[in-house]
Design a protein around this nucleic acid. Structure first.
Length: 199
DNA sequence: GAGGCGATTGGCT
DNA sequence: GCCAATCGCCTCG
């Protein structure tokens, strides 16, 4: 069962670090294509690496919308990244998915890339799911988005969520706010260490 | 108004 | 491992 908008808003209305850890194992779809979230990163408003750190701009205004809203931005002029808005202008970057739904469609968009490379990185993930700036500032609990905890499916052992430093940033580089599903083949990179404070 | 750079990716050495 | 692609926005003058 998919959470209502109110449910999702309540779930996301916490600090981004908690939400980033909790989203591992959730199912994300855009127009029916998607899969299980296996890698996230947290960005809080008092974090120098966060886009919200230096205040609201036209391009990051979605970070101040309701928790559970999408924040999509363009990076390096050519790729897009998808975030989930959390409390207090925090956000969770969705970095990698394990493909489950609409795999052929995602492969088409990605140029028939290998299964474990369809969405193994924030830019690849957006390309595979057809996400661009038109989907900035939308509710993640309403079409075309669908975001829900993976119900049953039997075996999804919440085996191990591990944390490590975030990737690609130049400020606050030590904060271990990248979360990933231990041992997944679908990550953008292997976790560099397995310590997961608070997990 | 010019210059620099980024929460990335893919191709080449 | 190194580097180009590509562009909106920030910083400085």
């Amino acid at each position: 069962m998919d959470p209502t908008t109110a449910d999702l808003q309540a779930f996301c209305n916490r600090d981004a670090v908690s939400v980033a850890r909790a989203l591992i194992g959730w199912d994300l779809k855009v127009d029916g294509a998607g899969g299980v979230i296996v890698e996230t990163e947290a960005y809080t408003a008092d974090d120098p690496a966060s886009h919200s750190f230096s205040g609201m701009r036209k391009s990051n205004a979605s970070m101040w919308l309701a928790p559970g809203t999408s924040y999509v931005y363009r990076i390096y002029g050519l790729h897009f990244c998808l975030n989930v808005v959390c409390a207090h202008a925090g956000a969770v970057l969705i970095r990698a998915l394990e493909p489950r739904h609409g795999v052929e469609c995602m492969q088409d968009r990605r140029g028939n890339s290998r299964l474990d490379a369809i969405a193994s990185g924030p830019g690849k993930l957006c390309q595979a799911l057809g996400i661009d700036l038109r989907l900035d500032g939308c509710s993640l609990s309403e079409p075309p988005f669908a975001l829900s905890p993976q119900s049953h499916e039997g075996q999804r052992v919440i085996s191990e969520v591990v944390s490590s430093p975030r990737i690609g940033i130049s400020r606050n580089m030590d904060a271990p706010w990248r979360f990933s599903l231990a041992g997944s083949r679908y990550l953008s990179r292997k976790a560099s260490f397995s310590a997961a404070p608070g997990v």
